[in-house]
């Protein structure tokens, strides 16, 4: 079983569209959406939810007003400014470190586990799908990413799948690092803009830091062919294989509006043909 994560550093370069295309193209795979705080893959995979579980992670301090004598120690100790002047805990700021609960002389603080979202295992027409929904204004998305990956891996191992294909999130921090752990390939989707190159450079360094093997796609390459050449040169200098270049294509948006992968919507389009070629390369080259 091989594991592929699609990431980009910069947002909006086409990760989910490309993951959707691979869902159509790959055989015997499990899909996972690890962009848990802005998940979109379900909009084209249309999952039927089979299992649903609460995401319980970490704890939040709760102050019992009957026991609290407002000595203020908790407020002085808290590094995350999570306790207000009137001794209410801001659950968004609370990091769940337990410091206040341990230190409170009145034993007025308890740590509570609260559901911070849900995660699912679903059936789709393309195969099994692990995904999640982070609760509104919740943190800990890196941990939810790890849970989604774990679900996908368990299914993959049980069914002896060939691939686990993971849609990642933008950025280079906690959720991205969690989605990259142990993958056989991190596929970076970039665009020919100065921001695209700047951000690709940072995500490539991050992937290398965590020993993830890298391949790259340039999306909408024709919007700035000069910048595309620069990105290709960058990849050559850094020993990164460019699997292909995709042209700007309004059909991609039409497919999304129809809730379909580009392969379903326009199987013989230039973009679909190119994506087929790219998928075959991944299937043959990634070990």
């Amino acid at each position: 079983m091989r594991e592929l994560v699609i990431i980009s550093g910069k947002g909006g370069t086409g990760k989910t569209i490309i993951t959707g295309a691979f869902a159509s193209l790959a055989k015997n795979k499990v899909l996972a959406d690890c962009d848990v705080d802005a998940a979109d893959l379900h909009l084209i995979l249309k999952p039927k939810i089979k299992e649903e579980q609460e995401f319980l992670s970490g704890t939040e301090a709760v102050i019992n007003k009957d026991l609290c004598n407002e000595c203020g120690l908790c407020r002085r100790l808290c590094r995350f400014d999570a306790i207000s002047e009137d001794f209410l805990v801001n659950p968004i700021a609370c990091e769940g470190c337990n410091f206040c609960a341990f230190a409170c002389p009145q034993k007025a603080i308890a740590m509570q586990k609260n559901p911070k979202g849900k995660y699912f295992v679903s059936d789709t027409k393309f195969g099994h799908f692990a995904h999640a929904k982070l609760g509104i204004a919740q943190d800990n998305s890196g941990k939810l990413v790890s849970l989604v990956k774990k679900q996908a891996n368990e299914i993959g191992q049980k069914l002896k799948s060939d691939w686990i294909i993971i849609d990642g999130s933008p950025g280079i921090g906690c959720p991205v690092i969690a989605s990259m752990s142990g993958v056989n390939c991190a596929l970076i989707v970039t665009e020919p803009t100065m921001s695209g190159l700047h951000d690709a450079d940072r995500i490539i360094k991050t992937a290398r830091h965590f020993n993830a093997p890298i391949k790259l796609i340039i999306n909408k390459y024709d919007l700035n062919p000069v910048m595309s050449k620069k990105i290709e040169a960058y990849c050559k200098n850094n020993d990164i294989s460019v699997l292909g270049k995709l042209a700007f294509d309004k059909t991609v948006v039409e497919a999304m509006v129809e809730g379909k992968t580009i392969i379903e919507y326009a199987p013989n389009s230039e973009t679909s043909n190119k994506l087929r070629e790219i998928w075959n390369k991944i299937d043959n080259e990634v070990i």
Partner: peptide
């Protein structure tokens, strides 16, 4: 602000 709806975005817009 950064993209998303989790910690980084919340910290930035609050």
């Amino acid at each position: 602000a950064p993209p998303g709806t989790s910690c980084s975005m919340i910290e930035s817009v609050s």
